[in-house]
Design a protein around this nucleic acid. Structure first.
Lengths: 190, 190
DNA sequence: TAATATATAGACTAGTCGGTTTATTAATAG
DNA sequence: CTATTAATAAACCGACTAGTCTATATATTA
C-alpha cells in the first residue's frame, strides 16, 4: 500500500516547508521544483495561478496540520490550564535549533504578503482564526464565559506566535518555555 | 536649520521602512534606490557590504527608535502595570490598517534571514534583548525579583510581537488591545 | 485500437535581481 | 589654482525570477 505521492501533493508539501523556512519572496519556484522533483510544466498545470496559488494552498495545508496538532495537544487533558500549558511545552520540546526543519508555520507569509496580496492575507487570517477558535472552545467547555474565552483565544495565539518568533530568532526554546510557565497565572486570573 | 539629509541616512530610513513592510527578500535595491532618490553608486559607496549591510544598519536604526519609544512609553507611569499597559495601548491606538505606513519593526527580517544570515539573526536577537531589558528593569525597579523580571521581559516581548503580527494580518488593533487588557492579570499574579 | 483527457517534460522569454565598473561631479585642502 | 578625496551618476553584467509555450508521454475510455 505504497502511498503514491502525486506531483501536486509533493509540490504543496515542499513549498510549505520552504515558505516556512525562507519566507515567500525568499523561496524561488526553481528551488521548490528541484526539491520536489516536479518539472515546471506540472506546476503550472496543477497551479495555473502560479506562485500565489501554490502559496495559498500551502498555507491551507499547513493550517490543517497545525489545527490537528492543537486539537491533539489540547485533548491530552480536560483541564484547560494543563492542556494548554502542556501543548506549549510540547512545542518547546520539539523546538531545537538543530532540528529546525520547520520554521514558524505561516508567520513569514503573513508578514510578507499581508500588504501585497489580499488573498494570502485572508488565508492567514482564516488560519489564525481557526487556531483561536480551538483554544476558545476548550475554555468555553471548561466554563469560561464566551466573551472572555474568545479574548483568551486571541491572546494565546499571539503569545505562541511571538514566543515562536523569539525562539526562532535566538535559537533557543526558552521563550516558549517561559510562555508555558505563565499559562496558569493568566488563566486562573481570568 | 534645515536638516540636510545625506544619502546614507536617507537610504537607511527608506530601507528600514520597506524592509518592515515587505520583508528582506520582498524589497529590491532598485525600489530602495528609487524611493530614497539615491543612485546605485552611492549605495555601494556607503554600504560596500551591499544589501546585507544595509539591512544590518536598518535593523540597528529601527531598534534604536523602538528602544526610545519603549523608554518613553514606560516613563509615563512609575507603576509598571500602568506603564506597560499604557504602552501597549499606545501601540494599539497608533495602529490602524490605513495609516499602516509601518510594518512590524524587525520581525520580517528575523523570520526570513535567521537561517541564512547569522549577521542579521544576531542583530535581531540583540534588538529583542534590548527591548526585554527595558521591561525587566522597569519591573526590577518596582520590586520584582530579578529572575522573575527577566522572564517577564521575554514574555512581554513575545506577547507584543505576536499581537502585532495578528493585528497586522487581520488589519485590526484588537489583538493589541486584548494584550493590553491582560497585563494587570499577568503582572499581579507574578 | 483509436480517441481523449491527464499529466509530465523542459526549452524559452522578458524582466528583475544584487553587484561591479568606470566616469564624472562636488567639496576640501594645500 | 591645483591636487586630492568624497560622493554621485549610471551603464553594464551574469544570474536568477516567475511565467509561457510546445511537445511528449501516460492513462482512461470508447
Amino acid at each position: 500500500m505504497k502511498e503514491k505521492e502525486n506531483a501536486k501533493d509533493k509540490l504543496i508539501k515542499t513549498a510549505s516547508k520552504l515558505f516556512q523556512l525562507q519566507g515567500y519572496h525568499g523561496t524561488g519556484l526553481n528551488q521548490i521544483l528541484k526539491e520536489s522533483g516536479a518539472p515546471k510544466g506540472s506546476l503550472y498545470y496543477h497551479f495555473p495561478g502560479g506562485k500565489e496559488q501554490l502559496a495559498l494552498e500551502s498555507v491551507q495545508f499547513t493550517a490543517q496540520s497545525i489545527i490537528k496538532q492543537i486539537n491533539e495537544g489540547l485533548n491530552q487533558s480536560t483541564d484547560p490550564i494543563q492542556a494548554i500549558q502542556g501543548f506549549i511545552n510540547d512545542l518547546a520540546e520539539r523546538f531545537t535549533k538543530e532540528s529546525a526543519e520547520e520554521g514558524i508555520p505561516i508567520a513569514a507569509i503573513a508578514l510578507e504578503t499581508s500588504l501585497s496580496s489580499e488573498t494570502l492575507r485572508k488565508a492567514c487570517q482564516t488560519a489564525y482564526g481557526s487556531y483561536q477558535d480551538i483554544f476558545s472552545q476548550k475554555l468555553i467547555d471548561a466554563g469560561f464565559k464566551v466573551e472572555k474565552a474568545r479574548e483568551l483565544g486571541v491572546f494565546l495565539n499571539a503569545l505562541i506566535e511571538g514566543s515562536f518568533l523569539l525562539s526562532f530568532t535566538t535559537g533557543t526554546n526558552q521563550p516558549l518555555q517561559i510562555a508555558a510557565e505563565q499559562i496558569p497565572t493568566i488563566l486562573k486570573g481570568s
